[in-house]
Design a protein around this nucleic acid. Sequence first.
DNA 1: ACCGTGACGGCGA
DNA 2: TTCGCCGCCACGG
Length: 109
Amino acid sequence: MKLNHEPTPFQTKVYEATSCIPRGKVATYGWVARQIGCKSAQAVGGGLRVNPFAPKVPCHRVVAADGSLHGFAGHTSGPLIEKKRRLLQEEGIAFDAHERVMKGQILRP
DNA sequence: ACCGTGACGGCGA
DNA sequence: TTCGCCGCCACGG
């Protein structure tokens, strides 16, 4: 039985690429977009926003190009975002005084 | 089929 | 360095 709507082919690609992000590192929306051959990072974000596999797919390892955290589990702000940062720290990701992931931890194309 | 919206990215001031 | 504007792609109504 289908408890939720099935993701589109595009979304499946996004989830797959996101799953490829190794633990202890993070990737940018643009990076994921490039992996799936998409020129719009915003489209990737739009897909993760409705991601029904929230903790299953390491979407918390996807950050903005400048290293700042945007959304998580459909929330653009709030305690969920803090949780996201917490998860990353637990995985060994280091943040600077600006609450941004250090560039060195970000996967680069 | 069209339009508005959104977890972005890059560049210029 | 920070702020704002525009362009970009996919989805839902």
